[in-house]
Design a protein around this nucleic acid. Structure first.
Lengths: 194, 194
DNA sequence: GTCTATAAAGCGATAGAC
DNA sequence: GTCTATCGCTTTATAGAC
C-alpha cells in the first residue's frame, strides 16, 4: 500500500480539483501539491488531459468502493434503510465525499461544453439511476418498474441539486439530509398510493 | 432601447458563456462576438472579473423579468397551474432559457471555488425558494409555512439537478417536464396528507 | 468612446542531465 | 524515474493615437 508517485499525484489532483475545479487545475500547482517536479507529471500522464482522465477514473473507483462497502454493511437492515443510507452517503463532510461530489459536479459542468464527456456521463448516470430504482423496487415490489425508475431519476437529480447547493453556498449537511429524507418519504408514499 | 455597447457586450457574453462556459470565456473572442475591439471591453468593465460580474447580474435580471411576466400572465388561472408553469418555464428550448440555465449552472459551479460569488448566489437562491414557497402556499393555504418552504427547496433543487442533466446529457425536455410535474404532484399530495 | 499595438503574465509542454 | 531549465503559445491587460 506504499503509495507510488503516480498515486500520490492522483490523490493530490483530487484534492486540488475539489479546491479549484477541473478547469482551475494547473500542472505547476499540482506538482507542488504532490511534492514532485513539473516534468514527472508529464512523464506519468503524458499531458494535462491524461492527468484529468486518470484522476476522474481514480475518483470514480474510490466512490464505487465506498458505496459498495456501505451498502454491503447495510444489507441486513430493511430495504427502506438501505435506500436512505445510500442516498445519504453523498452528504458527509469527509474529504473523500467532498472530493467526489465536487468532481462529479465539475464533470457535469464540463460536459455542457464538451461533447466527449457527455456519453460517459450519461452512462454513469444511467447506471446510478438503475441502482436506485432497484432499491425502490425492494421497498415497494408492487410498484411498476417505470414508476420506480422515474422516482429514482427524481431522487438522484434532487441529490445532485442539493449537492451543488451544499458545496456552493453552505446549505448545511443536516438540512440537505433532512430534505432528501423527506423527498424519499414523499416519493414512496406517492408511489404506494398510486 | 437602442442597445449601447455595454449591453451589446453583455449580450454577447451571455451567448458565449452558454457556449463555452464561464471559465472558457476569452476576452478576444468576446470582442469578436460583440463586434467591438479588445480594448473597449476593458474600458467598460475594468477587467475579466468585471465582465463576469456584470454579465451574471444582467442574466439574472433578464430571468427575473421573464419569470415575472409569465407569472403575471397566468394570474387568472388556478394556483396549481401557476406553480407548474413557473417551474416548467426553465425547461424550454429557447436561446434565452438555455443561456440563463447554463449561466446559472456555471455560476453554481464557479461558486464552489470562488467565495465572492457565494453570497450573491445564496441570496438569489433564497429569493427563488421563497417565491416558490408562496406559490405552494397559494395551492395549499393550510400547510405550515416551514413545510411549504422545504417542499419549495426540494422542487427548486430538483429543478437545478434536472436542468444540469438536460444541458449535459440530453435528457429530453419532455422527460424533464414529466419528472418535474410528477414531483410537484408527489410533494403536494404528501403535503396535503400531512 | 473606440481602436491598434504591444507589454506582461500564465501555463502547457519538451529537452537533457543525472 | 526524477529533476531543472526553458521554449513558445495563449490570454490578460495597458498605452497611446484618433
Amino acid at each position: 500500500m506504499a503509495a507510488d508517485r503516480r498515486t500520490v499525484i492522483m490523490e493530490a489532483a483530487a484534492r486540488l480539483i475539489a479546491r479549484r475545479g477541473v478547469r482551475g487545475l494547473r500542472i505547476e500547482e499540482l506538482a507542488a501539491e504532490a511534492g514532485v517536479s513539473n516534468g514527472l507529471i508529464y512523464y506519468h500522464f503524458k499531458d494535462r488531459a491524461g492527468v484529468l482522465r486518470a484522476t476522474l477514473e481514480f475518483i470514480n473507483d474510490r466512490a464505487e468502493r465506498y458505496t459498495a462497502d456501505r451498502v454491503a454493511a447495510e444489507h441486513r437492515t430493511d430495504p427502506r434503510s438501505v435506500l436512505e443510507q445510500t442516498l445519504l452517503l453523498e452528504f458527509q463532510d469527509t474529504a473523500e465525499v467532498r472530493e467526489n461530489s465536487t468532481a462529479w459536479g465539475e464533470l457535469r459542468a464540463s460536459a455542457m461544453f464538451d461533447a466527449l464527456l457527455r456519453t460517459e456521463l450519461a452512462e454513469a448516470t444511467h447506471v446510478w439511476d438503475g441502482e436506485v430504482a432497484d432499491l425502490i423496487t425492494a421497498v415497494l415490489p408492487a410498484a411498476p418498474a417505470w414508476r420506480a425508475l422515474e422516482a429514482a431519476q427524481r431522487l438522484t437529480a434532487l441529490l445532485e441539486g442539493l449537492s451543488g447547493r451544499w458545496l456552493s453556498e453552505g446549505l448545511t449537511l443536516d438540512h440537505a439530509r433532512t430534505l432528501i429524507l423527506a423527498a424519499i418519504e414523499a416519493e414512496l408514499s406517492h408511489l404506494d398510493s398510486a
